[in-house]
């Protein structure tokens, strides 16, 4: 019951936020809607029993990435939507009714083929009983330091490289 309510709230946040990220004209608004989407994804992680991941999602995205993006938008001074300068409506013959019909028909065709393939698997898929919710912190810790130790260390080196690289690239240079 509680999981279902959380799932519906989170999926509403995810779908609405993602749609608004696509549709909103103002980049600053898109960034705030991205924040809502990421909160929704954290809620979905909770319904999937991944408590540590949900918290990591909140810490990294809400505290780090979104603020970085906001800073980036502000420092480059552009909240307006950039027009597609060399894009689809500049090419003659594109963006007319004919192309939309062709696109619609091809989408229907591809979707039919893909659904045919998937249906074969879905027919044999049975929902088994789900495991109980349990904390994942200890298991993630053990797994990170035993099975995935190499990837863990490499990711720390990646983060160090990203830190130094970002500082080097963004440093103002005297010309």
């Amino acid at each position: 019951m509680f999981e279902n309510i959380l799932f519906f709230i989170s999926s509403f946040l995810v779908l609405g936020g993602a749609t608004m990220v696509v549709l909103s004209k103002n980049l600053m608004h898109a960034c705030i809607f991205l924040l809502f989407t990421l909160f929704g994804v954290a809620g979905l992680y909770l319904t999937l029993g991944a408590d540590f991941l949900a918290a990591a999602q909140l810490v990294v995205y809400a505290g780090g990435v979104v603020i970085l993006m906001l800073f980036g938008i502000m420092l480059t001074g552009g909240t307006e939507n950039k027009e597609n300068r060399f894009g689809i409506e500049k090419i003659p013959g594109m963006g007319s009714v004919k192309t939309y019909i062709v696109a619609g028909v091809s989408i229907l065709f591809i979707a039919t083929v893909v659904l045919k393939i998937i249906a074969n698997y879905m027919r044999h898929y049975q929902q088994t009983d789900l495991p109980e919710y349990m904390t994942t912190v200890e298991r993630i810790g053990h797994s990170l330091l035993t099975d995935h130790i190499l990837a863990f260390e490499i990711s720390s080196i990646l983060l160090l490289g990203a830190l130094i690289g970002a500082a080097m690239i963004a440093r103002p240079r005297k010309s």
């Binding site: 780090g64 990435v65 970085l68 993006m69 980036g72 490289g161 990203a162 830190l163 970002a166």
Partner: peptide, 11 residues
């Protein structure tokens, strides 16, 4: 990786 990508990308 998303965090690293955001930092380097914005730089």
């Amino acid at each position: 990786i998303a965090a690293a990508e955001a930092a380097v990308g914005l730089a």
